[in-house]
Amino acid sequence: MSASAKPIANARSGTGIPSARLITWWVIASEIVIFGGLLASYIMHRVAHPEWAESASHTLTWAGALNTFILLTSSLCAVLAHQAADSHDGPKAAKLLRLTALGGLIFLCVKGYEWTLDIREGFVLSSGGFWSFYYTLAGLHGLHVLAGMIIMLIVAADAAKNEELQRVECIGLYWHFVDIVWIFLFPLLYIAK
């Protein structure tokens, strides 16, 4: 859609924050309570069930650490894309965004490989409380990675034509948030055994 079809409402900025970034912050705020509710439920159960430690000892720390590294690196790409967009270099921003999305893809591949190993060992969603939370938490996070990748590729397609560059920062903000969620999932699922 061309910029001229946007309503006047979209261009106004009563708060001093552009509407696109403002809505991103509100999305992040609502995501905090979604992940927060799930994480709080997990932590309560985990502390109440010391016997879950045995299940937790089977998770693959190397896979979690590798995925943390991948997401941190993709976050770096996302913020560099924001820098490029600020200097009005759309094609460079697009390239960096696609690199970020590639990071997401590698993340999901590692995740898929890790889950394959888990399932081969017989640990599935219904294998017990810990494994239920393990797959649900990582699965919900994985869905956010997937959604972020798709949006990022759409934003990159526009950015390559130097259009809608303000969106580069917004998708970056979302991506960093998804990164932060993983930063907490990593110790909760892989380290604290």
Partner: peptide, 14 residues
């Protein structure tokens, strides 16, 4: 502050 308030609600829930 907004984000912290959201975290605070989760703390209340907990």
């Amino acid at each position: 502050y907004l984000l912290i308030v959201c975290l605070l609600f989760i703390a209340i829930l907990f």
